[in-house]
Amino acid sequence: MKSFKGKTLRWEWRDSVVELTLDHAPANEIGTAMLAELETFVDAFDVLAPETSVCIIASGRNAVFSAGGDLRELYATAVAVASKDRPAGVRAFLERIHAVMNTIDAAPFVTIAAVHGACLGGGLELALACDMIIADKMARFAFPELRLGFIPGFGGIPRLKRDLGNAFVRDLLFTGRTVNATRAHAVGLVAQLAGEGEALRIARSTAAQITKYDAVTRATAKKFIKPIPHDELRREIELFCELFIRPTVMEALEKFVQSNDVMPYLP
């Protein structure tokens, strides 16, 4: 399937580059609807791979790459079932999203996240699954999960640890603060900085360069330099489910869902 238009995202293949555009109001939240279409996307990799050198993941929405997991849906789903049944539902979602992230992480072509605006939680985890992040200088990155009483659950910590030093990982995790693109570039999270509104153009230009190299060599290099931290990813799912059964989580989610705060990602 070389092109697709769903309810939350679309993709189009052209000249050995596939562009995936997240476009789900209001802020590209990753809930069951986007997860199902991300699964459709990674299922198409077998068809796309032989003719694809690069995949660019970008956002079609203003001021946001992705605000992360759909917390309103998570709360609504969890509150609708008995507390003892909540971990099973969460675990099923996490298993599916991990499968998607792992497939993107190991894609047999180069993956670039072209990020503008807010890239938070699950949005950052999606970007981290990619090989490179090209960021608009107005982009901001954060892991705000601890404010809700859990940890990033889409593979964030293992992938951040794989790529970056502990000082930055712990700062991001323990404060929940957002960091700007310049800082993210300085610590090695962002590969290239783009001017305002230029991230996608620069990602395309970078993709055009990458397509010049031999596919087998490129895939071998990727496997060599980007091992997937499978054990830590499994452990993350277990820890998330352990934390999720605590009453603190439902209280925090309820507060978040009802909040009109302009900084809802901070406690």
């Binding site: 946001v64 302009v262 809802p264």
Partner: peptide, 14 residues
């Protein structure tokens, strides 16, 4: 709103 707050923060930091 919250996204505009983040934009303004980036504008100030930059």
């Amino acid at each position: 709103d919250s996204l505009q707050t983040l934009e303004m923060l980036s504008r100030i930091e930059n």
